[in-house]
Simulated scan of single mutants.
Amino acid sequence: MPAFEVMGVVNVTPDSFSDGGEWFDRDAAVRHGLELAAAGAAILDVGGESTRPGADPVPEAEELRRVLPVIEELAARLPDTTLSVDTTKAAVAAAAIDAGARYVNDVTGLRGDPEMLALVAERDVRCCLMHMRGEPRTMQRDPVYDDVVAEVRVFLEERLAVARTAGVRAERIDLDPGVGFGKTVEHNLALLRRLDEIVAIGPRVLVGTSRKSFLGRLTGRDDPRQRLAGTIATNVLALAAGARVFRVHDAGAIRDALAVAARVLDPDDAV
């Protein structure tokens, strides 16, 4: 297993917070995926439904129409790259797996669709169990925790146990504390500050801070595309705390920053 993996974001949506509409066209999305892979992304996360705060749901048929042609083309052109489908719907995940995806990134932690957990186990694909308070439409409405890190850890431990009982192999599971999903700026900072407590659960930890609004709040950068420096800082800190998968928009810059940080942290690590 490499020291880290970069997961490049391929949003096939008209309304994502950071690049809504930019890659909505199939050919544009495929080109973007190829560029991310060339820049160092080992995983490409293809999504057809925005999970930004307040986002509206997308019908299953429309989500399939958006993501399947992109996954099929990328699978044909990038046989050595892991393709991920970012979806909460088992039917979409199943079709994406048939098209070449080998990773299911479900922001509900495999809870949103009652058929998703069994699908992931039966198809023996990699998955991400993420913590989210509420749902995208409501998650940022005054989120409150007594101890956000402790509560996120308990949730992830419970979901891990459920997944293992359902037959998902341990090596197929990544855990995501859900930075920005039902959390305030201070909650997000606490999760990053104490990320080692999430890492201690055992599976690989995935971190997704890329271009998120809390970075804009901290830096004064309203334009998500101007939040690269903040993204790099949080990812390098997360790597030092033990995170191993990084979901990002700017694959090349993040890959370079992590490669340097990984070598500093472990002189014997070959990048």
Rank of each mutant, 00 (worst) to 15 (best):
D86A: 04
G216L: 02
G216F: 01
A253K: 10
H131W: 05
N235E: 12
F155C: 01
D19G: 12
P53D: 06
G20W: 06
R244Q: 13
A150F: 09
R255V: 09
R153T: 05
N235A: 07
R247H: 13
T88A: 00
A29M: 07
E35C: 07
T209W: 04
P59F: 00
E63V: 00
L228P: 06
A190D: 15
R193C: 09
A99S: 10
L78S: 02
T138S: 15
D176P: 10
L117A: 02
D15T: 12
S18G: 10
I97Q: 08
T82M: 13
P143R: 12
P203G: 08
E63I: 02
L218F: 01
E186I: 02
T108Q: 03
D250L: 13
E5W: 15
A261W: 14
R26Q: 15
F24P: 04
R126F: 06
G112K: 05
K212Q: 05
A55D: 02
F4M: 13
V236G: 09
I198L: 13
D266C: 11
S210M: 04
L215G: 09
T108D: 00
A170P: 12
V260H: 15
R225L: 15
P53S: 03
E72W: 03
A55F: 03
E63F: 00
P143I: 08
R126E: 08
A229I: 12
F246N: 15
A253R: 13
V205N: 08
